[in-house]
Every structure is written in C-alpha cells, then in structure tokens.
Nucleic acid binder design. Structure first.
Length: 223
DNA sequence: GCATTAACCACAG
DNA sequence: CTGTGGTTAATGC
C-alpha cells in the first residue's frame, strides 16, 4: 500500500504540514499508466484530483470537427485542476504519451487542504495563473502566426519546457502535432520536411535534433 | 492577374 | 503513420 510519508517526489504533499500527510495517505491512490493509456476521460464523472508524479501527458478535447490537443504537460504538476474543481464532469481528457505515474487524491480531502492551508492553496494558484498566461500567449500566437511559425514555436517549446534539450524523442505523431497547433497532418508533414531539408532540424526516426536554433527562433518570431 | 498559404483528397510506401 | 501530388479557396500585392 502506497504511503505519502515514504514518497520522496516533490508533489502535492511537499508543502503540507507533516501531520496532514497521514490524512492524505488514506485518501490517495497512485497508479502507473503506459504510453497511450487514458488517465481520465472527457464526459466522465470525477471525484478526484489528479497529480502527475512522473511522465508526460497530453490534455485533449473533442472539438466540433476534430480532436484538439490543449496542452502537453510534464511532471510534476496537477493535471486537470480546472476540470476537477469547477465541475464534477470532466471537460477534457488526459492521455499518457510516455509511461507515467499519477496520484489521484480524493476531491473532498483536497478541498479540506485548500480550506485549511493558505500556502498550499497559494502555490496552486500561482501555477494556474502561470498556465493561464501561457495559454493566452499561445492562443493569440495561434490565431496570428502562420503555420511554420507555430510549428517552430511548438518545437522550441517542447525543447525548452518539456525536455530541456536540443535533442529528444519526439513524443507526438504528426497528426497529433496538427491537432495541437490547429492544422492538418499534411501541412505538418510538409513543414517538417521543409525544416529538415533546410538543415534546421533532423529526424532519426522519432528522435528530433535541433540543428539551427537561431533560424527556428526566427521563424517562430516572424510567424 | 499572379503568388502565396493552407486545406482537402487520394494514393502509396 | 507519413510523404507527396493535384486541386481548390482565400487573401494579398
């Protein structure tokens, strides 16, 4: 049986007073997911808050015409707080894109922690505000940049925020990348091969290598 | 008009 | 799942 007080990950419990750890341990379930596994599903009833302990996850939603990927997130972070707190029906889905570990916390327990622990609540607010600002930025970019700019931006974002490296295993299919930036898989394919031909990036199978970061940043900025 | 951008379709590895 | 060619529509010199 999993116990929070034996867990060394930086997580939901990190900022809690020690005596609350026991309470938390009684109302938490830690689960592993394989790449491709659904973690929670749009439309389903939810009585818990999900905390991504390790791994990478896509948050996605059925749009009026096709799937839309909202964000790619990596541990450690909450996944789906907006949908856990404001409504007990999930407004979007979460799917593991690599093997991941998630802790589910009972929603009532979580609420208690928020009510009783200002620091705990404040830290969560800070993260949600940062995310909201990033989303505002992304949505304005998405409506004004041309496609090569959006693809370049997304590659840089994955490199900087998710993998902290110029070389990483690309976690999405081209069609998913299309769903993320709001374009067709064909356009993604053309832009990626164009970047490759111009020696801006290189693919070794699924491994992406950023060869010319300056040009990529220029394309991203110019839109 | 002509060029550019990007979507949709189809078909092939 | 990916790459590419043909076609079409919208937009901008």
């Amino acid at each position: 049986m999993f116990k929070c007080d034996q867990c060394s990950e930086r997580c939901i419990a990190s900022n809690l007073p020690r005596q609350l750890l026991d309470d938390l341990g009684k109302n938490i379930a830690q689960i592993e997911f394989k790449k491709g596994d659904n973690i929670f599903r749009e439309g389903a009833l939810s009585q818990s808050v999900a905390f991504l302990k390790c791994g990478i996850v896509k948050l996605h939603l059925h749009g009026p015409v096709k799937e839309k990927i909202l964000r790619i997130v990596k541990a450690p972070t909450y996944i789906g707080l907006p949908t856990s707190i404001s409504d007990n029906i999930n407004h979007f889905s979460a799917t593991a894109i690599i093997d991941t570990t998630v802790c589910f916390i009972d929603l009532h327990q979580f609420r208690e922690f928020i009510y009783n622990n200002g620091k705990f609540a404040y830290d969560i607010m800070v993260e949600m505000c940062e995310n909201e600002l990033l989303d505002y930025q992304r949505y304005t970019n998405q409506s004004q940049k041309q496609l090569p700019g959006m693809i370049a931006e997304t590659i840089l974002c994955l490199s900087d925020r998710i993998f902290n490296s110029n070389r990483f295993n690309f976690p999405l299919t081209q069609s998913e990348l299309g769903d993320l930036v709001g374009t067709s898989r064909e356009s993604v394919s053309r832009i990626l091969s164009d970047f490759s031909q111009n020696k801006i990036i290189a693919f070794n199978g699924k491994e992406l290598n950023i060869l010319n970061r300056d040009v990529l940043e220029e394309i991203s900025a110019k839109g």
